[in-house]
Design a binder for these strands. Structure first.
Length: 586
RNA sequence: GGCCCGGUAGUUCAGCUGGUUAGAACGCUAGCCUGUCACGCUAGAGGCCGAGGGUUCGAGUCCCUUCCGGGUCGCCA
């Protein structure tokens, strides 16, 4: 028997025809003289029927069928009687009256239900991933992922990009995430690193004259996992020559727009909103703001800098700030216990606590108002737009902590109040990131993005006088509070590159040792260039409305970076270790 | 590395202040059933209560340790 159709790839025109379909026995309904099997393949489900009155031998054979048996059936597609049509099934108007059945494979009872939206523990699903991936929602996610990858290839190809592969075995580079290392058999004591991204190679490709490069690239970072972070993940990586920030942004908005249009039927408005880094921090306390709701931060430092309330004035005297957000209606809504829980919540982010004022009809409930001058209180209430029923939440500390604490508190309150509209798709670009940030542990400036990121022309002079103020030609694209991708215009001037290296404490020798090949390449005529990389997994996660990146990766790893299906990583043969000149220290 | 949540039939869960033989639903098995599609009815099988130690006359329940899964802080140029 040869398959002629997929189970659900049928139309009214197939009625009356003889066809052969193959798939898994999804559900069996044995009524005695008649047996219905829902046959499932990647396309969907088709009901097939065995009736003893038509062929008792065949009916008898069908009695053996159990869940997840793989079947081949030949039969005639017929219209169902009006009253037996199943409106819940795309193929519900028809059924296949079987003439021939082959059991291609028997199956043990599966440990998980092969159904949409099961609530089975994820560990069980991952151990039996081959069964989990049979479920329609997982198959939809994989199909969605394929379609986005296909659009990426089409879109960038149409815009003159070339897909070029870069090595997976490469040189370890300092800074950034921890590398995955691969020992060299040939070179005793030496190691390859798996790429954290193809960054250096794509810049070299620009030097080589490949104008526009793109790649769907596997990247590796040996860091702890999160719901949206895996040790190996996929980037849509690209680089362009002879461009400025606005060119890169426009090109990639085009890609996103096309994905949402073709895959989800959602028309996005372009250009996307743009926020500078500073504005994003001031208003939302984060460089990846979720703008689906308001609840913006308010800076109260000016009002309370000379306040008698030392918690506030001291924070400002030490160079920090006092900021607040107005949780509309929460004063009336939240019990004291819930407010205290918010105070505990901000401590996660390093805040020492959360001051608050609950605004009542004709009074204020708070433990801090007695330390504030009446005029200060009034100006605060006015600035945050307080009305009866509101809860004003304050954090006073260094800017870093205030932003972090209030930025997360803003999300927490939005979740509690159900302020987030799941149907919104709020894209935005965050631009003008700081070029450098100070590393307190290492006591030096480090690159925030990477050391090849170009500073903004007008800020170059600040490199010597006020490095923290230098803005970069860097940009992130953010969707609903998730960083989807980012990139920058790179430095193509050798002098400037040298200056940046020295600014971040790289000696000439170190720079040469680590990035010598790139610096060498830059000597021979380097086009201005810049690029961007999207996190493909995160993009798919949001498009699929999945809650974890694991739901859009066929074979993901769990929190301790292992694979529950294969058992990787695992010990290896002593012989293998010996060849690699590696001894395991107990 | 820190903090929080969870681990009881194949699956999802219940199991009170410690007290007889650890339950339910779904799934599974068998029998019956000719229009079901959450098929129905009847019967049945199925448990190292994650593991180890402790307290107790007695532990699924309390304590300690440990393993596993999830979330998160640190980390993630």
């Amino acid at each position: 028997m040869k398959r002629t159709h997929r189970c659900a790839d049928l139309t009214a025109e197939h009625v009356g025809k003889e066809l052969v379909v193959m798939g898994w026995a999804h559900k069996r309904r044995d009524l005695g003289g008649v047996i219905f099997i829902d046959l499932r393949d990647i396309s969907g489900i088709l009901q097939v029927v065995f009736r003893s009155e038509l062929d008792s031998a065949l009916h008898h054979k069908a009695e053996q069928i159990r869940s997840e048996y793989v079947l081949a059936v030949r039969g005639t597609l017929v219209n169902r009687d009006e009253e037996t049509i199943n409106p819940n099934l795309p193929t519900g108007k028809w059924e296949l009256v079987v003439k021939e059945l082959r059991i291609l494979s028997r199956a043990e009872t599966p440990p998980i239900l092969i159904e949409e939206g099961i609530d089975t523990n994820e560990a069980v699903r991952l151990k039996y991933r081959f069964l989990d991936l049979r479920r329609p929602d997982m198959q939809r996610n994989m199909i969605l992922r394929h379609r986005v990858a296909k659009i990426a290839r089409d879109y960038y190809d149409e815009n003159g990009f070339l897909e070029i592969e870069t090595p997976v075995l490469m040189k370890s580079t300092p800074e950034g995430a921890r590398d995955y290392l691969v020992p060299s058999r040939v070179h005793t004591g030496k190691f390859f690193a798996l790429p954290q991204s193809p960054q250096l190679f794509k810049q070299i490709l620009m030097v080589s004259g490949f104008d526009r490069y793109f790649q769907i690239a596997k990247c590796f970072r040996d860091e702890d996992l999160r719901a949206d972070r895996q040790p190996e993940f996929t980037q849509i990586d690209l680089e362009m020559s002879f461009v400025e920030v606005s060119d890169v942004i426009a090109m990639n908005e085009g890609f996103i727009k096309r994905c949402f249009d073709e895959v989800l039927g959602i028309q996005l408005q372009t250009p996307f909103q743009q926020l500078t880094y500073n504005e994003a921090m001031e208003r939302y306390g984060t460089d990846k703001p979720d703008t689906r709701f308001g609840l913006e931060l308010v800076d109260l430092s000016d009002i309370v800098k000379n306040s008698g309330f030392k918690v506030f004035s001291d924070a400002i005297a030490r160079g920090g700030s006092v900021r607040a957000l107005n949780a509309k209606g929460c004063g009336a809504k939240f019990a004291r216990r819930e407010i205290d829980a918010l105070g505990e919540f901000v401590k996660i982010y390093g805040a020492k606590g959360m001051a608050w004022i609950s605004v009542e009809e004709n009074s204020l409930k708070s433990v801090i108002t007695k330390f504030l001058a009446e005029e200060e209180t009034n100006r605060i209430l006015e600035k945050v737009g307080a009305e009866a029923g509101d809860l004003i939440c304050f954090v006073a500390d260094t800017d870093d902590i205030v932003f972090d604490a209030l930025g997360h508190l803003r999300l927490e309150i939005a979740r509690k109040l159900n302020l987030i509209d799941d149907n919104k798709m709020n894209f935005l670009w965050v631009t003008e990131f700081p070029l450098l940030e100070y590393d307190g542990d290492e006591k030096r400036w480090v690159a925030k993005h990477h050391p090849f990121t170009s500073p903004m022309d007008e800020d170059i002079d600040l490199l010597d006088t006020d490095p923290g103020k230098v803005r970069a030609k860097a940009y992130d694209v953010v969707l609903n509070g998730v960083e989807l991708g980012g990139g920058s215009i790179r430095i193509h001037d050798q002098e400037l590159q040298r200056k940046i290296f020295s600014r971040i404490g790289f000696s000439e020798e170190e720079a040469k040792d680590r990035f010598g090949f790139l610096l060498e390449a830059f000597k021979y005529g380097t086009p201005p260039h810049g690029g961007l990389a999207f996190g493909l997994d995160r993009l798919i996660m949001l498009m699929a409305k999945a809650s974890s990146i694991r739901d859009v990766i066929a074979f993901p790893k769990v929190q301790n970076s292992s694979c529950l299906m294969t058992g990787a990583p695992d010990v290896v043969d002593v012989k293998q270790l010996k060849e690699l000149h590696i001894a395991i220290k107990e």
